[in-house]
Design a protein around this nucleic acid. Structure first.
Lengths: 103, 103
DNA sequence: TGGACTGTTAACCATCTGGTGAACTATAGC
DNA sequence: GCTATAGTTCACCAGATGGTTAACAGTCCA
């Protein structure tokens, strides 16, 4: 897992691929047809998403079936939620301090 | 808001800046001293974070005080949670279908 | 076996990104 | 007013990224 999931999600096409896969697994061809970009371009995007652990691929004959890997999305989500929690807690501390001063 | 928050969070230094700001506001200098890169480099990273709405800046004399803007982090978090929810619902549908078949 | 189909790899190109040092702007404080 | 400090902007560079077309590798199927 070379790349971070944030890096993987930093490109709009890759986020659209994730949105497409969220509603169900799809082949590379199905994913490609959704965007106005060449097959090799999609192939590269898929590689980035795969290497960052956002999706997994099962080769079935000549079709590559792509599925979302939620664990990785969860990790990234948790990071953001955690930052917000720390920040929110800080606000609480400040608020408590202000109340303390008012007494 | 030109850049997406995902783009903003795609660089490790920028994520570390967010982590630093989660524990409280800081000046540019305080943020710079944490990493082994030049001031102009940090200045650019801060610009990306600011333009994507991840942080806000209040100029106080010659100091720029930086704070986290959780609304933007929330937007990005919501997107990821939503994708996971759609995906999880799909699994439920598949599971129900399998149960249906077993009868 | 040979053509059609699915997808990747290779080679190439333009643009974006992330870094640097030097110069600049503005405030602080003696 | 002068100097130190905080931070940005400028000009530049190397490498990464995202796109292309052409060629290739497997698989399917008549």
């Amino acid at each position: 897992m070379v790349n971070s999931p944030f890096k993987a999600l930093s490109h709009p096409i890759r986020r659209q691929i994730v949105e497409r896969l969220a509603v169900g697994p799809a082949t590379v061809g199905e994913v490609t047809s959704d965007f106005g970009v060449s097959k090799p371009a999609i192939s590269k995007h898929l590689k980035v998403l795969e290497e960052s652990g956002v999706l997994s691929r099962v080769v079935d004959g000549r079709n590559h079936v792509l599925s979302l890997r939620t664990e990785t999305l969860d990790e990234a989500t948790d990071w953001m939620v955690r930052q917000r929690e720390i920040w929110t807690r800080l606000f609480d501390v400040v608020e408590d301090h202000l109340k303390e001063e008012q007494r």
